[in-house]
């Protein structure tokens, strides 16, 4: 069996697509035989990254968000990219409770959730050029036996 697989989606930055992105990544990762908790973790992290692109990257204007997912062995990686306004100070943006939009009911927990639920989170951003969030998670950690359900 091949142990690598890739997919890429490009969608409009409207809030209805937050759910679409979560469901798509959940469907894509089923081939890794993940636990319910692992799926929830990845869905939450993807939701945060896509929401950031929509609210902060494009400030609610409609442009394109891309999500690239890759499986290599039992490692899942997801890159969410926008070409919006970018982040001047990435370190500050990633601090828990920091938000540039407190008036809009933002909790400032987006990056904290991504870091809590994924093994690795890397952010590349330049003001005026957009932001790219790369996340990685090993699926099936600590599981010594892989069981496959017969259909």
């Amino acid at each position: 069996m091949r142990d690598t697989n890739e997919m890429e989606l490009i969608f409009d930055s409207c809030s209805a697509n937050e759910r679409f992105a979560r469901v798509a990544v959940a469907a894509f990762m089923t081939q890794l035989n993940p636990t319910v908790e692992e799926v929830s973790d990845v869905k939450t992290a993807v939701s945060e990254a896509v929401t950031n692109a929509i609210i902060h990257g494009y400030e609610q204007e409609i442009h394109k968000v891309s999500m690239r997912c890759r499986i290599e062995g039992n490692l899942l990686s997801v890159t969410v990219k926008d070409t919006g306004k970018g982040i001047a100070d990435v370190k500050q943006a990633m601090m828990p409770m920091y938000t540039s939009k407190p008036e809009a009911d933002r909790s400032g927990m987006g990056f904290s959730f991504m870091e809590a639920f994924m093994d690795k989170v890397e952010v590349e951003s330049a003001p005026g050029h957009g932001t790219s969030v790369f996340m990685e998670k090993r699926i099936g950690k600590g599981r010594s036996l892989w069981t496959t359900q017969s259909l």
């Binding site: 929401t51 933002r106 959730f113």
Partner: peptide
């Protein structure tokens, strides 16, 4: 079944 940090923001607000 699902909530992300936007839900937290809504509660805090």
């Amino acid at each position: 079944e699902f909530m992300d940090s936007s839900g937290i923001g809504a509660i805090m607000g």
